[in-house]
C-alpha cells in the first residue's frame, strides 16, 4: 500500500490516467446523454421532463459518492498516515460540491413542472442541501489549513463526521414522509423501465469517468502546488542565510 505513498510513483500513474479519463468521460457522457435524449419516450406522468433524470441522478450519486470517498480517504489518513490520502480527499471536494449543486439545481428545475414547486423542506432535499454546505465548509477548511501549512488532521475528522449525512440522505425518503419519491434503484431491483434505465446507467458511467479524471487532475495540481511552494521556500531560506552570513557565501 505504501508503494503508492511516493508522489513520484503516483504521478507517473496519474499522468497516464488523467487525459484518458477526462476525454473518455466527456465522450461517454455526451454519447450517453444523446442516447437517452433520443431514445426516451415521455413518461406516463412526467412527460418529457423524465429526460432530466439522465443528469439529475448521476449528479446525485456522485455528490454522495464524493463524500463517501472523502470519508474513506480521511480514515486512511488518520489510521495509516498515508501521505496521498489527505491529497485525494482534498481533490474530491470541488467536483463533489459541483455535482451536489447540479443535483439540487436540476432537481429544483424538475420539481417545478412536476410537483408544482421549486423547493420544499422535506428530508431528502434538506439533507442534500446540508451535503452541499458540508462540501463548502470542507473546501474552506482545507484551503485555510493548506495556506497555513498546518496538519490536515482536523479536515480528516471533519470528513469522517460529515459522512453521517450520507446514509441520512439515502434513507431520508424511507424513514420520513417526503415529497421526493422513494429510491427507484435498490440492490438488484429497478422500478425504472429499461428504456430509461440503460441510457441512465451509461450516463452514470460517463459522469463517473469524468469525475475520476477531475480528481486525478486536482491531485496533480495540489501536489505540484505543494512542491513548487516548498522549493521556493527553501530557496528563500537559502538566500536569507546567504545574506546573513556574506562571508560564507
Amino acid at each position: 500500500m505504501h508503494g503508492y505513498a511516493n508522489p513520484a510513483r503516483f504521478l507517473k500513474i496519474a499522468r497516464w490516467f488523467t487525459m484518458p479519463l477526462l476525454v473518455g468521460g466527456l465522450i461517454v457522457t455526451a454519447a450517453a446523454l444523446i442516447w437517452g435524449w433520443m431514445s426516451s419516450p415521455p413518461d406516463r406522468l412526467m412527460g418529457d421532463s423524465v429526460k432530466i433524470l439522465f443528469v439529475h441522478l448521476p449528479a446525485a450519486w456522485l455528490g454522495m459518492g464524493g463524500w463517501t470517498a472523502i470519508a474513506i480517504a480521511s480514515l486512511v489518513e488518520l489510521v495509516w498516515r498515508h501521505p496521498l490520502a489527505a491529497i485525494s480527499a482534498r481533490a474530491v471536494a470541488v467536483p463533489g460540491a459541483v455535482f451536489a449543486f447540479l443535483c439540487l439545481a436540476s432537481g429544483s428545475i424538475w420539481g417545478r413542472p412536476t410537483w408544482g414547486t421549486w423547493w420544499v423542506w422535506d428530508g431528502r432535499l434538506t439533507s442534500m442541501l446540508v451535503l452541499l454546505f458540508l462540501y463548502l465548509g470542507y473546501i474552506a477548511l482545507t484551503n485555510a489549513l493548506a495556506r497555513e501549512g498546518s496538519s490536515s488532521r482536523i479536515a480528516a475528522i471533519f470528513g469522517l463526521v460529515g459522512a453521517i449525512n450520507v446514509p441520512i440522505i439515502n434513507r431520508s425518503v424511507v424513514w420520513w414522509n417526503s415529497l421526493h419519491q422513494p429510491p427507484s434503484i435498490t440492490m438488484g431491483n429497478s422500478a425504472i423501465d429499461p428504456v430509461y434505465l440503460y441510457p441512465l446507467l451509461a450516463c452514470v458511467l460517463g459522469f463517473s469517468l469524468l469525475f475520476g479524471g477531475v480528481v486525478f487532475a486536482r491531485m496533480r495540481a495540489i501536489l505540484a502546488d505543494a512542491q513548487a511552494e516548498a522549493r521556493l521556500r527553501r530557496k528563500a531560506q537559502k538566500a536569507e542565510l546567504a545574506q546573513a552570513t556574506p562571508g560564507d557565501a
Partner: peptide
Amino acid sequence: FVYAAYAICLIGTLALT
C-alpha cells in the same frame, strides 16, 4: 425545464473539467 436543467448541468460539468 428540460433545456434549463441540461444547460446548467452541461455548463457546470464542462466548467469543472
